Computed example of a mutant assay.
Amino acid sequence: MIEVRAAGVNPIDHLTVNGFLTSGVLTAPLRLGNEASGVVAATGSAVTRFTVGDEVFTWVDPRLGGAFAEFVAVHEGLLAAKPASLSFEEAPPCRWWA
């Protein structure tokens, strides 16, 4: 569980809001936001790579979304440690696609 400190807007959000992603792609209820940075607030029993308090960034499964919320749950395989040299606002992964 990640306490979201910053979230990025990316093309998936644009497509969702404008109705281009429809049946079979998204699950209800609709939750916007697919990338975020923040602090690990809680972990499941199987999580081994991160602990509470770690600063991370993530790509959220686009079928689930939720990065625009205060907290978002993601699989640890979608997390990476946030570089200390970056702010939370600089860290969401969309900026690293290019």
Rank of each mutant, 00 (worst) to 15 (best):
residue 2 I to H: 06
residue 3 E to N: 13
residue 3 E to K: 15
residue 4 V to F: 03
residue 4 V to T: 03
residue 7 A to W: 01
residue 7 A to R: 00
residue 7 A to Y: 09
residue 8 G to W: 01
residue 10 N to S: 07
residue 11 P to G: 05
residue 11 P to W: 14
residue 12 I to P: 01
residue 13 D to F: 02
residue 15 L to T: 02
residue 15 L to F: 14
residue 16 T to R: 11
residue 16 T to V: 11
residue 17 V to L: 13
residue 18 N to Q: 12
residue 19 G to F: 07
residue 20 F to L: 15
residue 21 L to S: 04
residue 22 T to S: 15
residue 22 T to A: 13
residue 22 T to E: 12
residue 24 G to T: 04
residue 24 G to Y: 03
residue 25 V to T: 14
residue 25 V to S: 10
residue 26 L to S: 00
residue 27 T to E: 11
residue 28 A to G: 00
residue 28 A to D: 12
residue 28 A to Q: 14
residue 29 P to C: 04
residue 29 P to M: 06
residue 30 L to T: 07
residue 30 L to S: 00
residue 30 L to G: 00
residue 32 L to Q: 09
residue 33 G to V: 01
residue 34 N to F: 09
residue 35 E to L: 00
residue 36 A to C: 15
residue 36 A to H: 01
residue 37 S to W: 01
residue 39 V to N: 05
residue 40 V to P: 07
residue 41 A to S: 15
residue 42 A to V: 08
residue 43 T to S: 13
residue 44 G to I: 05
residue 45 S to N: 14
residue 45 S to W: 08
residue 45 S to K: 15
residue 46 A to L: 14
residue 46 A to D: 15
residue 47 V to L: 09
residue 48 T to H: 13
residue 48 T to Y: 02
residue 49 R to M: 11
residue 49 R to N: 11
residue 49 R to C: 07
residue 52 V to E: 12
residue 52 V to S: 08
residue 53 G to D: 09
residue 53 G to A: 10
residue 54 D to M: 09
residue 54 D to Y: 08
residue 55 E to I: 05
residue 55 E to P: 02
residue 55 E to N: 11
residue 55 E to S: 10
residue 56 V to N: 04
residue 57 F to C: 07
residue 58 T to C: 14
residue 58 T to P: 00
residue 59 W to Q: 10
residue 59 W to A: 11
residue 60 V to Q: 03
residue 61 D to I: 03
residue 62 P to V: 08
residue 62 P to G: 10
residue 62 P to L: 09
residue 63 R to N: 10
residue 64 L to R: 15
residue 64 L to K: 13
residue 64 L to S: 12
residue 64 L to T: 11
residue 65 G to S: 07
residue 65 G to V: 06
residue 66 G to W: 03
residue 67 A to R: 03
residue 67 A to L: 04
residue 68 F to Q: 09
residue 69 A to V: 01
residue 70 E to I: 00
residue 70 E to P: 01
residue 71 F to I: 03
residue 72 V to T: 04
residue 73 A to C: 10
residue 73 A to N: 08
residue 74 V to R: 07
residue 75 H to F: 10
residue 75 H to G: 11
residue 75 H to R: 14
residue 75 H to A: 15
residue 76 E to V: 06
residue 76 E to P: 03
residue 77 G to K: 08
residue 78 L to C: 11
residue 78 L to Y: 14
residue 79 L to I: 04
residue 80 A to N: 05
residue 80 A to W: 07
residue 82 K to H: 07
residue 83 P to M: 07
residue 83 P to A: 06
residue 83 P to S: 04
residue 83 P to I: 06
residue 84 A to I: 02
residue 84 A to K: 11
residue 85 S to F: 07
residue 86 L to V: 01
residue 86 L to Q: 13
residue 87 S to N: 05
residue 88 F to S: 03
residue 90 E to L: 05
residue 91 A to I: 02
residue 92 P to E: 08
residue 92 P to T: 02
residue 95 R to H: 12
residue 97 W to V: 14
residue 97 W to S: 15
residue 97 W to P: 00
